[in-house]
Amino acid sequence: MIKHIAAAALLSAALLAAACNTVEGAGKDVSSAGKAVSNAADGAK
Rank of each mutant, 00 (worst) to 15 (best):
V37P: 01
K45H: 15
A17T: 14
A26R: 15
D29T: 09
S12P: 01
V23A: 12
A6M: 05
A13Q: 13
A9C: 03
A19M: 04
V37K: 00
G43I: 00
D29L: 11
N21E: 07
A26G: 04
S38N: 10
A44S: 01
A18G: 15
E24G: 10
K35R: 14
A13D: 12
A14R: 02
A41Q: 05
S12W: 04
A13V: 04
D29E: 07
L10F: 06
S31Q: 04
A33P: 14
L11Q: 09
G27I: 13
A9Q: 01
K35Y: 07
A13I: 11
A7M: 02
A18P: 05
N21A: 04
A9T: 03
A7N: 09
A36R: 10
A40E: 06
I5N: 01
H4M: 02
N39C: 06
A13P: 03
S32F: 09
A14D: 03
D42S: 12
A40V: 06
G27Q: 06
A8Q: 01
A40H: 12
G27V: 07
C20F: 15
A40M: 15
A9L: 02
N21P: 12
A18H: 13
D29W: 12
L16I: 10
L10D: 06
A7W: 14
G34F: 05
K28S: 11
M1Y: 01
A13Y: 03
M1N: 02
A41L: 07
S31Y: 11
A19F: 10
K28M: 13
A18R: 14
A33K: 15
C20Y: 03
K35V: 10
K3Q: 02
A17E: 12
E24F: 09
K3L: 04
A41K: 06
S32A: 05
S31W: 14
V30H: 05
S32R: 08
K45L: 15
A36Q: 07
A26T: 06
D29I: 15
C20R: 13
A9F: 01
G34N: 04
S12D: 06
I2M: 10
E24K: 08
K35P: 08
I2G: 00
M1H: 02
V37G: 00
A40S: 10
V30W: 12
S38W: 05
G25V: 11
A44C: 05
K28W: 07
S32D: 13
A7H: 05
M1E: 07
V23T: 11
